[in-house]
């Protein structure tokens, strides 16, 4: 069975932010909400690497565990999604998330964090596939069309890989063998409790 994952090959990532704007474009994500972001480590120094990060769709997702209203669910493709109808915007998932994925629109003056928004792996939400309401709440549903997340599909250097975990791990493994170096599958240990052995 397919187990969807993300893998960012930091030796390819050049912080071009295509993943970020592709996401904004595909889902019309508003200003201030960053479902995906690129973090640069060791900035400006030798050893600098950039990693594109969004929801990793963890195995046994911490966000789902800590959610006080159980608004999360995991799809058959192991994509972690949530229902904005049930979410109350408490912010606990952000505290539990190892990757800073959950985002909250600011509504009202204080405390009224809106309903959480995060990467859906381009898989929409609980509404019926391709419905307007699904698009408005969660963005488009590419997975249901047989397409992969646009961030990965548009990645300028093909650093960001999306798809079945075993397949992308194999792609990454082959790359590392071919080129002779690799800084690893960032976040995999934390998200999936496994790593890509080479």
């Amino acid at each position: 069975m397919a187990r969807m994952k993300f893998l960012c090959d930091a030796d390819r990532c050049i912080e071009c932010n295509a993943c970020v704007t592709a996401c904004k474009n595909e889902h019309e994500v508003p200003w201030g909400i960053n479902r995906r972001r690129v973090v640069t480590l060791n900035d400006g120094k030798p050893g600098e690497r950039s990693v594109s990060m969004a929801c990793m769709h963890c195995t046994d997702a911490p966000c789902a565990a800590v959610c006080p209203v159980n608004c999360f669910y995991t799809t058959a493709d192991a994509v972690v999604l949530h229902s904005k109808d049930i979410c109350i915007g408490c912010g606990y998932c952000f505290y539990a998330c190892p990757f800073g994925a959950p985002q909250y629109p600011k509504v009202g003056n204080f405390g009224s964090r809106g309903k959480m928004d995060k990467c859906t792996y381009c898989a929409g939400g609980p509404e019926s596939d391709f419905s307007t309401i699904e698009y408005e709440k969660y963005g488009s549903n590419r997975l249901a069309e047989g397409k992969l997340p646009l961030c990965a599909e548009m990645c300028s250097t093909k650093a960001l890989l999306a798809g079945d975990g075993d397949m992308i791990a194999e792609i990454y493994k082959q790359r590392v063998i071919k080129r002779g170096y690799g800084s690893g599958a960032w976040g995999w240990k934390t998200a999936y409790r496994e790593t890509v052995a080479i």
Partner: peptide
């Protein structure tokens, strides 16, 4: 793991914080 990020949201500069797991253990 923390780096630089160009957006003003400072907390987005955290790349990975496994401490979320401890938090989860506590909370759940």
């Amino acid at each position: 793991i923390t780096g630089r990020i160009s957006i003003p949201d400072g907390k987005a500069a955290n790349l990975i914080q496994p401490a979320g797991r401890d938090y989860r253990d506590f909370r759940e």
